Deep mutational scan, measured.
Amino acid sequence: MDSLVVLVLCLSCLLLLSLWRQSSGRGKLPPGPTPLPVIGNILQIGIKDISKSLTNLSKVYGPVFTLYFGLKPIVVLHGYEAVKEALIDLGEEFSGRGIFPLAERANRGFGIVFSNGKKWKEIRRFSLMTLRNFGMGKRSIEDRVQEEARCLVEELRKTKASPCDPTFILGCAPCNVICSIIFHKRFDYKDQQFLNLMEKLNENIKILSSPWIQICNNFSPIIDYFPGTHNKLLKNVAFMKSYILEKVKEHQESMDMNNPQDFIDCFLMKMEKEKHNQPSEFTIESLENTAVDLFGAGTETTSTTLRYALLLLLKHPEVTAKVQEEIERVIGRNRSPCMQDRSHMPYTDAVVHEVQRYIDLLPTSLPHAVTCDIKFRNYLIPKGTTILISLTSVLHDNKEFPNPEMFDPHHFLDEGGNFKKSKYFMPFSAGKRICVGEALAGMELFLFLTSILQNFNLKSLVDPKNLDTTPVVNGFASVPPFYQLCFIPV
């Protein structure tokens, strides 16, 4: 009986604490739906499609509103004006990374994606500088992407125009580009180590996009005490870190300090320079996690976009025909596509942009946080508050993009057929937390897609009208449904 009384008292205290925290903070924060004790607004949000729920709530509470995930307040920004004001106009104040408990377990605050403060700034600055020195957006990395595009075309030829699921092959190409940047090595598509790495990356994007992960991140005790797919994700990350550590040891034994070959060499050189400046942010643990982040951000996002792009091109054969006509006119058949071609191919450029806009790969991006107490639109948001960005509300804005739910390359073309930029184009987020590999991803999408369409016609196994382009999961990332196609050599 005594234990029951204690339990009831504990629960009562928890409920009172929950109510007090919510009521004391709500006077400062933007308005929002009334949260339930302990669980907050979790029942009012469709976990399978958070973005749709945010759109519905914005119609009631406006472009800036507050939700509670458990006891934790989260300020939501919906629509271009609110997102721009926060991420661009007040970029420094909104540059923090929001709480992501599962990532905390995986990387302990290291790396480039989930770190904060001085650690994040130094690692991000170093990573950007190193990638630029190796030619991100310049010639040397373009050579690597072109080489991988040629290998991709050869792998597709091996399908002999038979029906195939493109998931694996389209994942190999961007993964190999990242391998060449980090390890100075590309792998054969049949290499077992490479296959294991690909498998872990593919599993992780599916797990991260599941409703279960949303629950884990908002009720963090689940991570330590409950079984579930989150444990598989943590094991996959541990596998990748151990693999990278092996490569780091190989580099330490063979590195030429006067001739760095890749990202690992550059990081080890930085560690050597910083060894007298303790404590340094440049450690082996930081290198492991930064490399894992580059793999995660640079492989599955690009391969998922490529997979979605081919599905949309199957669905819209008239678009595919126009792209192939432009390829034939500008590039021809006797040389590989290059980035200089893009400025002469406005329709193809528009298609690449429209694919990214339409699929809305990361509907709410990753959570941000404010780095200080900030007054925002007459609300006071306390330091450390998590900020949720609705990228969907920007990419699918119906004023900027008429009929935003329709796939239409003319969203990025003017009346004369010239490519038209849009400030609403934010597939990689915006501001200080914009994806480090934005330029690389854009290069890969253009070169891989043009190389495929230069060499193959795409054949659907069903009537294009019957192809479903609805994402199968739409949590962290929008993942396309399973499909097969035939690559018919031109």
Rank of each mutant, 00 (worst) to 15 (best):
L458D: 01
L313N: 02
M136I: 15
S24N: 14
L485I: 09
G137W: 11
E300M: 15
K275M: 03
K270V: 06
D89A: 04
F282K: 03
R108G: 13
N258V: 11
V83G: 02
F183A: 03
K322V: 10
W20R: 08
C13N: 03
E300L: 10
S162P: 00
F94A: 03
L310S: 00
R144Y: 07
Y68L: 02
I74W: 07
Q252M: 08
S180V: 04
N217S: 14
R150V: 09
G91R: 07
V472H: 10
Q356I: 11
C13Y: 03
I99M: 13
T392Q: 09
V38A: 08
D468T: 07
L445E: 02
R335C: 02
I374E: 02
E274T: 08
M443V: 10
R105L: 02
M426C: 10
D2Q: 07
R139A: 12
F194I: 11
G475S: 10
S115Q: 12
E122I: 08
C151I: 07
F407Y: 04
T392V: 05
N133G: 14
M426D: 15
I359R: 04
R21A: 11
N457T: 09
V237A: 07
E92L: 06
T301H: 09
N455A: 10
V38N: 02
L7I: 09
V38F: 14
V473A: 11
D191T: 03
G25L: 11
K241Q: 10
V60D: 08
P402G: 09
E246R: 09
N455K: 08
R124V: 04
I488R: 04
E274V: 06
I284S: 09
V76Y: 04
V352K: 00
A439H: 15
L208T: 10
G40A: 03
D2V: 13
G431W: 05
K84G: 06
G27Y: 11
K399C: 11
F446Y: 06
Q356M: 11
P33T: 01
M345G: 00
L29H: 04
K322S: 11
N466V: 10
K185L: 03
V145A: 02
V352M: 07
D265T: 07
V177G: 00
G27T: 09
N289P: 04
L453K: 02
D373S: 06
G298F: 04
D89K: 04
I99P: 09
F482D: 15
E325G: 07
R333N: 11
N204P: 04
T167N: 09
V319K: 03
N116H: 13
N196M: 12
F126G: 04
Q454G: 05
L306N: 00
R108K: 10
C172P: 02
G296K: 09
P63R: 03
I207Q: 06
N196G: 10
P367Y: 06
L77G: 00
L440N: 02
K420V: 08
P63Y: 02
R357K: 00
I39K: 01
S286N: 10
N218V: 13
R124G: 03
V330P: 00
Y243I: 15
K423G: 07
C10L: 12
D165E: 03
S220M: 13
G137C: 12
V436P: 13
K138W: 13
F428D: 02
L313M: 12
E104T: 12
C175D: 00
I74T: 10
F482A: 14
D349G: 10
R21V: 10
V330H: 11
L67R: 00
S286G: 09
P260C: 11
V177I: 12
E250G: 06
Y358L: 08
L391R: 14
I359S: 13
A441V: 09
R108S: 08
S343K: 11
F65L: 04
L314N: 02
P166F: 01
A82S: 07
T229R: 10
G109S: 12
S51G: 13
L9A: 15
P37G: 04
L7T: 10
Y225R: 09
G117L: 04
F267V: 03
P63D: 15
G416D: 12
M269T: 15
F295C: 04
G70D: 03
G79P: 01
Q44R: 08
G98W: 12
D165W: 01
H410N: 12
S162G: 11
G98S: 10
V113G: 12
Q214A: 09
P317F: 03
C13T: 14
V473L: 14
N259C: 10
K420Q: 15
T364D: 04
N378H: 08
L361R: 11
G442N: 15
M257W: 10
F226S: 07
S51D: 09
Y347P: 00
I284T: 04
N116T: 12
V351E: 01
A439D: 15
P166A: 04
E250A: 07
L361S: 09
S12V: 12
K28F: 14
Y61C: 02
F419W: 03
G137S: 13
N378M: 03
L16P: 03
Y358T: 06
D414R: 02
I207D: 03
V330C: 09
S53K: 15
G96S: 12
I244M: 11
L15W: 15
R108H: 13
W20T: 03
D49L: 01
L71M: 10
R21T: 09
D360Y: 02
Q214S: 15
S127I: 15
P363E: 04
P337V: 10
E325L: 14
L388Q: 04
L77Q: 01
K273R: 12
F226T: 06
E300A: 14
H344W: 08
L453R: 01
C486G: 03
H316P: 00
R125S: 11
C486E: 08
F134I: 15
R132P: 07
S303V: 06
N202I: 10
R139C: 12
K206C: 10
K206S: 14
P363K: 03
F219L: 11
Q324D: 04
G27V: 14
A321N: 13
I123M: 15
N41M: 01
K241G: 07
L458C: 03
K247L: 12
E246M: 09
H353C: 11
S478T: 13
